[in-house]
Design a binder for these strands. Structure first.
Lengths: 343, 343
DNA sequence: TTGAAAGCGCTACCAC
DNA sequence: GTGGTAGCGCTTTCAA
């Protein structure tokens, strides 16, 4: 079977305590012994059991990451950022796709608790904020990523979604668009709501609310977005400026436009959100509001790990709120509004 | 602190053995006691420690998945498939991005062993097959995904890469292309080599090897692929038919062609591989060889878990080899060869 | 510098 | 049906 600390100790003719010391580089062991023991561990392919160590009070050095769907490029890129930072700091991460279902979220939360992860990052939409409170009560470090949850006192790293929405609005306005619409995610996704809000606010502020804005919702997948966009752009007075709450929806809109024979950006301008790899490969390349995905992931990990360290001295670390700035990335999917809006 | 089995036992006035039984639904406990204990566990938000359980011989119900880069849509989609199947079967998965570096692979392998995962899936390229043998010796269940490793006796689930390559070749041939090239991944990625091989074999078999085929290598990222494609398509007698070993490289080629003023597919035809979400959002949409990604992931998980079950009776399960079939998905990036090849 | 021993939380076997 | 108890592999005092 697998070698244990006992095997090493026996082989080296020392006690397991000594072996433990050299494993952890603690205590005072003579250089000779240390080298000897190291050699034996190597020879026996000994891998200390992190599980047993965790049982004695050490951390598991494992973090949980909940996202709606790891196959969605945005979350895949986020996961990569989280993983990279975690690895640098000596942690691994368990990734969980929830499909934005509370029931799945809850099951994963319990599972991760049972596995005694050291902290959890939540990048998934949650209807009922209450399902997080048990975690907080047990002082499990939690960080929300790109999610707003005002009711809870929990670490949060977000982008300024309203700013993002307003960036999109300004751009469309500058291009002369007056007939605007928004394709948003279901209302449980709070960040989308904020983006829509920022979009409207910018319009209002500019006094440009010439015509009522259409706001449509669709699920996160391409097909749903395309379908909704097909409906929207298929209408008599279709909008010439369309802001989508993420790149996938924008691509759905792009495809819908194409299918309807509408040229982008000649007939309709489309702006996405996120700036995932997808935005750079579409035709035309997508003008989109870029999230600093890497920073989001890094900060989330850092918040967790800082808390793990501090937690030892300081009982209750205050919930930190980090807000990062999105940026408009201009590519080719948004252009001048058509001179005469196909009336 | 966190409630333990002792807290529950004390609260219920029973022994921990009894509580353990109800947790695991084993043994004979009176319905009344069982309900009572359940109620208490609920009330105290008790989550049994999977770590402690694992230490007593139970599994950890955690699997490891090594891929080059989780932010690459192909691996993200694969990870989703793996995760879904794992969840169905009661396992969670730790995802590790290796960037195809052996050193990273080795560190992750050790880490996962220390965490006592129940099995590992390897979807990453490995130069030195030897770094897997310690795992096999310790009878750690391992499954290779979409990787060939003939030297090792280990479960493998792959697609028929040669068939995939030949599918691409046939298509290009049928479209009348004679000046062909391949953009492949570094040679350590065995699946790419097989694709190239299938491509050449199909050409040879068709007796169509009119002009020597250019074979170029590039790293897996978009930028490198684009750069290499720029060189390739910028040459005097650039190929009119280009087969790329994955979708990202194909997109790099698409972008290179655009930059060079070459129209796709009018001037140059491009075929990708994988059929990730990327293939459907490019312009023109990418003709590509589709992998059954979901099946790959599912089979890999099943192989591991079957071995975990069998392992209890049967000492040495034979290494299974599952080979799935790729399919050509025709979209718009490959068309008739130009009548006169720009000489 | 090193070792003995008391846990960590849980499972499983054996008594009662 | 239920409880006592010996580990699982490791960390960590406390002595020596």
């Amino acid at each position: 079977m697998k070698a244990t600390i006992y095997d090493i100790a026996r082989e080296a003719g020392v006690s397991i305590a000594t072996v433990s010391q050299v494993i952890n580089g603690k205590g005072k062991i003579s250089e000779k012994r240390r080298a000897e023991i190291m050699e034996i561990m190597e020879r026996l392919h000994y891998q200390p059991s992190a599980i047993a160590a965790a049982l004695t009070g050490k951390q598991t050095y494992t973090l949980g990451l909940l996202v709606p769907d790891i196959s969605n490029p945005y979350f895949a890129e986020l996961a990569r950022a989280v993983e990279d930072r975690s690895r640098q700091l000596g942690y691994s991460v368990v990734i969980c796709s929830t499909d934005n279902k509370d029931e799945r979220v809850e099951r994963y939360l319990n599972l991760l608790q049972q596995k005694r992860v050291d902290g959890m990052m939540i990048g998934t939409g949650i209807d009922n904020a209450e399902i997080l409170s048990p975690l907080l009560q047990q002082s499990m470090p939690v960080a929300l990523i790109a999610r707003h949850m005002p009711a809870l006192s929990v670490h949060t790293v977000t982008i300024d979604d309203r700013l993002g929405g307003s960036l999109a609005a300004q751009h469309l306005l500058e291009l002369g668009h007056t007939r605007l619409a928004v394709l948003s995610e279901p209302s449980k996704v709070s960040s989308s709501q904020e983006r829509v809000r920022g979009f409207r606010e910018a319009l209002n502020k500019a006094g440009h609310l010439l015509e009522p804005i259409q706001i449509r919702e669709s699920a996160a997948d391409l097909a749903s977005a395309k379908q909704e966009a097909l409906r929207l752009l298929g209408e008599q007075n279709y909008p010439t400026g369309l802001f989508c709450c993420n790149d996938i929806q924008a691509i759905g809109a792009l495809q819908a436009a194409k299918e309807l024979g509408l040229r982008v950006p000649h007939d309709v301008s489309i702006i996405g959100f996120d700036d995932t790899i997808l935005a750079s490969v579409t035709n035309p390349p997508l003008t989109t509001v870029a999230q600093p995905i890497e920073d989001l992931g890094r900060h989330a990990v850092d918040l967790l790990i800082d808390e793990l360290k501090d937690g030892l001295q300081d009982e209750q670390t205050a919930a930190q709120k980090i807000v990062l700035k999105p940026e408009l990335v201009v590519r080719d999917s948004a252009g001048q509004a058509p001179a005469v809006q196909g009336k």
